[in-house]
Simulated assay, not measured.
Amino acid sequence: MGLMSINDLVEVEGQPLVLNVDLQGEKTLDWAQRNRAELESLVATNGAVLIKGLKVVSTGQFSKLLQTIFQGPLLEYQYRSTPRTGLKGNIYTATEYHASETILQHNENAYSNEWPLRLGFLCMQPSPVGGETPIADSCKLYELIPQEIRDKFESKQLKYVRNYSDVDLPWQEVFQTSDKGEVEAFCRQKNINFEWLPGDRLRTWQINPASIVHPVSGKKVWFNQAHLFHVSSLGKDMKESLINSLGKEFLPRNVYFGDGSEIDESELQLIRDLNQDLRIKFKWEKHNLMLIDNTRFSHGREPYEGNRKILVGMSAPSGFQSI
């Protein structure tokens, strides 16, 4: 019983590559073990694949499934930027923002100097309305961004600044500890600059590139979260409200060029618009599994109604040294 026949793989323009699986009584983990090399090849070649027909009924089973496919342990969600709930086997809930909010396209942990090469998303409960997880090709995004903007971002790099508080995420949640010494040790290890402020507050900043070279294709990839971290991503009213109440220096998160200079908001908006234009959307179905090359494909979330439960696991750590 092989992985694929001509009828198993479905390619439709504007949709993710779909692999239809007929287990024919075979256990899901046995199927994954037998076909893991072909599955990795599919992800490496195509960047993303949506698998239909598997039966994954528990968090523990999902963790074992991803470890089998990715041929390695799953990663802890460290240096957090969004609220999630940790489950069994380093499986996490998808970002727990309000159902009415849109989560913009992003490559996981692209604000950091370390990120997972592989992501696995499992739909345990699709929302009745909305709730899609669009994906977008970050290699194509790089090619579409005007060269003068690319050159500026690549030469100057990006400085991510975070102030931790209840307005966004407290540092105890981001670093998963209340021990300042552990926070400082983590920051030193990851080349994150830090400063303790009055009132037990913490500020961090780090400088990272705007793009990377894809490890397989050798193509440039737009790999950063400037469009997401910048205060303008919150909209004009929220941006002005936060600046007026907190001051620009104390915004929960913001991003500058590596030399500390301001980024033109119109350039960030252009990048957001291009990313939106590249989105590939599909409707989740129960038990759907999506495997992603996180270096190549970004992901986001559409607003939704009703209940929705999407789980995620991350594997294969990669990174570069910050400057």
Rank of each mutant, 00 (worst) to 15 (best):
T93D: 04
V18C: 11
D137C: 07
S245W: 09
N109V: 03
K64L: 14
V216N: 13
A44L: 10
N307K: 13
R253A: 09
E173F: 14
L289E: 03
D237A: 15
N294L: 01
D137Y: 05
L65I: 06
V161D: 06
Q189W: 08
E240Q: 14
F297Y: 15
Q269C: 10
L289N: 05
V312E: 00
P128C: 12
L66F: 04
K159W: 08
E132T: 15
N46K: 13
R162E: 09
K281W: 08
S63K: 01
I271M: 02
D22Q: 13
A99T: 10
A226C: 05
Q176D: 15
D293N: 05
V56W: 00
E76H: 10
D179W: 05
V18G: 02
E154G: 05
E13F: 12
K52Q: 10
G86H: 12
D30A: 13
D200S: 11
P198R: 08
S261N: 09
K286W: 03
K309G: 00
V312D: 00
R84G: 04
D166S: 14
T82V: 15
Q33Y: 09
N35S: 04
S100L: 08
S5T: 15
I69G: 06
L3A: 06
F186S: 11
Q71P: 10
G53T: 06
S5A: 10
G86S: 13
K286P: 02
G218F: 06
N254Q: 08
K309V: 05
N307H: 12
H214P: 08
S322Q: 09
S138A: 15
I91T: 00
W196T: 03
A316E: 12
L23H: 05
I243Y: 01
S63G: 08
E302G: 09
K64T: 05
G47D: 01
A94W: 01
L246Y: 02
H230I: 05
Q24F: 13
E267N: 12
L169G: 11
K190H: 14
R118P: 01
E182C: 04
G199I: 15
S245G: 07
S241G: 07
I69K: 04
D273C: 08
L270V: 04
A32Q: 08
E13N: 13
H106I: 03
R253I: 05
S245A: 10
P134Q: 02
I292A: 00
R301N: 03
L197H: 05
L169C: 14
T95M: 09
N294K: 03
E154Y: 03
T28Y: 06
S217W: 06
N294D: 00
V56Q: 00
G86F: 04
R36W: 06
N288Y: 14
N163T: 14
R80V: 08
T295D: 07
W31M: 04
H214F: 04
D8Q: 13
I6S: 12
C187M: 10
V43T: 02
Y164G: 03
Y142N: 02
Y304F: 15
P116T: 01
Y79L: 13
L268P: 02
R301D: 03
F297N: 09
K239V: 05
K248V: 14
I310V: 13
R296C: 04
E249S: 13
L274W: 03
V231K: 07
R84E: 08
L3M: 07
I149N: 02
V18S: 08
L197R: 10
I51L: 11
Y256C: 04
W205T: 11
Q276K: 13
K140E: 15
